[in-house]
């Protein structure tokens, strides 16, 4: 049966209203504060290190993002902070409409439920994008001011791609938070569940996954192929966490010398991946770096879509009445 009218009708109106709600909320103030403070602190620490370490690195700007100052790189902070922001914005998107008893009134206007859900998601994503872009600019600005070296075009392109990937990473968590806000009528339950899952996936899963793999796959590797296979299995299981995907993408994008997502693990074992005919440590062109992590980038976006669709289907079947 064909529905009459467009499912998009009203999306813009909903998104605009939600965005203005987000931007004027106290929550946004907290997020901005969090974003600016962490951005500044982490960058200042890593800048200190960079100045001590190197003076002739061609990709100096990118080091700002990845260099661990006191074991705390900007990228690592993002991996943890972005889900928090997304959950903070998304956990009460739908259930607050129920609790304020506004849902039936809004849905009795000539729009479909699609518009409400999609508008809310777009507004949330836009809010996060604004915050992250602000943070990104703070970092770049600080780096320029303190390092005094103008960045080249490729560096900027890589940094911009990294911003885009970060927003996609936030999308996964926003879709998850919105799914929970559809599932649970109480915002507290939704927030707690989303945070619980975040804690499990971001902090516990990396440890748990390697133990799980060790149980099923023997750790002893006699040949290089076997070793790489084992590593691939570890990676595959770890990739259940969007944070792992994000980490892999950013590592490759921000360091042109990285030729494989397994490179850091091999390095930890004192090994190096040397492809025939390549010069170790030589920078890859941007497009090659992107190609290495293309599957991961697609996975992040696909994950967002899948989570959104699950929430969408459940929301469509829910009764308007609480």
């Amino acid at each position: 049966m064909q529905r009459e009218g467009s499912p998009w009708q009203g999306v813009g109106v909903v998104a605009r209203k939600e965005l203005s709600d987000h931007l004027s909320s106290v929550r946004m103030l907290v997020i901005e504060l969090l974003v600016v403070v962490t951005g500044v602190v982490v960058v200042l620490v890593s800048l200190q290190q960079i100045r001590d370490v190197t003076a002739e690195d061609p990709f100096l700007l990118l080091r700002v993002f990845t260099r661990s100052g006191e074991q705390l790189s900007f990228v690592f902070v993002l991996t943890l902070l972005v889900p928090l922001i997304a959950i903070g914005l998304g956990f009460d998107l739908v259930n607050s409409e129920y609790n304020q008893r506004t849902l039936s009134r809004v849905l009795s206007q000539p729009i479909y439920r699609d518009a409400l859900l999609f508008g809310k998601f777009l507004a949330g994503l836009a809010t996060i994008a604004i915050s992250l872009t602000a943070m990104w600019m703070v970092v770049i600005g600080l780096a320029l001011a303190t390092l005094g070296v103008p960045p080249n075009g490729e560096e900027l392109a890589r940094a911009a791609l990294m911003l885009f990937v970060t927003i996609a990473y936030a999308g996964v968590w926003l879709a998850l938070a919105m799914l929970f806000s559809v599932l649970f009528r109480s915002p507290a339950t939704a927030a707690l569940s989303a945070l619980g899952l975040w804690l499990f996936i971001s902090i516990l899963w990396p440890f748990l996954s390697s133990h799980l793999v060790n149980v099923f796959v023997p750790a002893s590797a006699s040949s290089a192929d076997e070793l790489l296979n084992t590593l691939a299995t570890h990676q595959a299981v770890r990739r259940v966490s969007p944070g792992a995907l994000f980490g892999e993408i950013v590592t490759v994008l921000l360091d042109p010398a990285v030729r494989s997502t397994q490179q850091s693990q091999l390095a930890a074992m004192g090994l190096a991946l040397i492809e025939p005919g390549s010069i170790p440590g030589a920078p890859l062109p941007l497009l090659q770096s992107v190609l290495i992590v293309w599957p991961q980038m697609v996975s992040l976006i696909a994950g967002t879509i899948v989570l959104f669709v699950i929430g969408y289907v459940i929301f469509q079947r829910q009764e308007v009445r609480a």
Partner: peptide, 15 residues
């Protein structure tokens, strides 16, 4: 059921 937008455009609802 089939034309909800037409109905909702013309009907006001106070829940």
């Amino acid at each position: 059921v089939r034309e909800p937008l037409q109905v909702k455009r013309r009907v006001g609802y106070l829940p």
